[in-house]
Design a protein around this nucleic acid. Structure first.
Lengths: 199, 199
DNA sequence: GTAATATGTTAGTAAGTACTAACATTCATA
DNA sequence: TATGAATGTTAGTACTTACTAACATATTAC
């Protein structure tokens, strides 16, 4: 029984533990026994909530797959200065990646095992985000702020820089980047990109 | 016995098959039985060459872990025009990623299981490459070609754009990017980065 | 040709895994 | 207090996995 954190109902606890263990040990490496133990429930309780490990995995994907967070930001930044807007987008993007790092890890490791599902989630996130950002660039071009470039490709470039930075930071499990590194890197990335796209 | 491709000695065939299966199914998902079958050898032959599956996996990492390929390129591009040099670097980088995509997949999926080893390989590749590229930017700054920016951060930005593009392409298993997409994306990325860093 | 070496065949073991059956216990609510 | 729902306990099954033993066969070197 161990700790009995009242709050979460059983199903939620199992899903949470599963997210953590699937992301660190993979689908095969995380056993139902361990998931149950870490969730503080009996193994059979897990199977009463989820008919199979497969199903549990899919429910994890469904539960923690995420929707674009940038869309709501666009009106807010429309009036801002270019570099400031880019900085805000970058920060929001990195924050979102941080808050969903377990899902990203799962997507990386299980992409080949569940291609359709993972692919769908990936598109619902990154690709959607790219299109949103591209439409922002489009507006700026019509306003004459930025030069004439392919908006979607530029969005890919911008987000790609930060996504790789995020991955590198995740990879560097030992000599971790300090939190302050992002503060150094964001303005430099933004500066390069802004100068590279301004008129 | 099936196909008996004379060429490769047994050990090499097993390593090659292992690389492929570990990358598509993960360390746990790839069974020694399957590796042996796909290699065209008996399972016990595998264990005569490698004392354990663990050991086989480590030998795969050792065999296919790679060294920087950019270093030899630097003298060659030193005299070239900036954008042309960047284009060449990008192409070489993408080619290298392509030729090692199985290793990259393994690094992504097994990072948490073998942190020390994977981390070492990662550093031997990406981080080394970043430093090499940074030294190129340093030279250009002394020649007065580019403006004053943090060379290593810029290298991270440049390679990051392409690394994310590579990852996206790998992820997009279904509606695959056509080979021509790289031809559209490389110049646009290079153009943004070059304008962003020139004096 | 003979000896050594690499490989194959067959069979098997010990351990772990997802998942189930049967029955007991807790706990909220009426 | 009684009832029903959710959970726990114990035991077990069928299957897979990494890995081994013992012996047979092929291949190569001299």
């Amino acid at each position: 029984m161990g700790q009995k954190e009242i709050s979460l109902p059983t199903r939620g606890k199992i899903l949470e533990t599963s997210l953590k263990l699937f992301s660190t040990k993979g689908f095969l490496g995380a056993t139902t026994k361990e998931i149950a133990r870490e969730s503080g429930v009996a193994e059979i309780t897990l199977f009463r909530h989820f008919p199979s490990k497969e199903n549990l995995f899919e429910e994890v994907l469904n539960t923690y797959s995420f929707l674009p967070v940038l869309k709501g930001l666009l009106p807010e930044i429309a009036a801002m200065q270019y570099e400031k807007a880019l900085t805000m987008i970058a920060k929001k993007f990195l924050d979102t990646l941080d808050s969903r790092k377990e899902m990203i890890q799962i997507m990386h490791s299980e992409a080949k095992r569940y291609p359709e599902k993972i692919h769908k989630i990936y598109h619902g996130f990154i690709e959607e985000l790219i299109k949103t950002l591209a439409s922002y660039f489009h507006e700026l071009r019509e306003k004459g702020v930025v030069r004439d470039f392919d908006a979607e490709t530029a969005a890919r470039a911008f987000l790609g820089m930060f996504f790789s930075f995020f991955n590198a930071r995740e990879f560097d499990m030992f000599k971790k980047y300090k939190g302050s590194d992002a503060d150094k890197i964001i303005p430099e990335f933004v500066s390069i990109f802004a100068r590279g796209t301004l008129k």
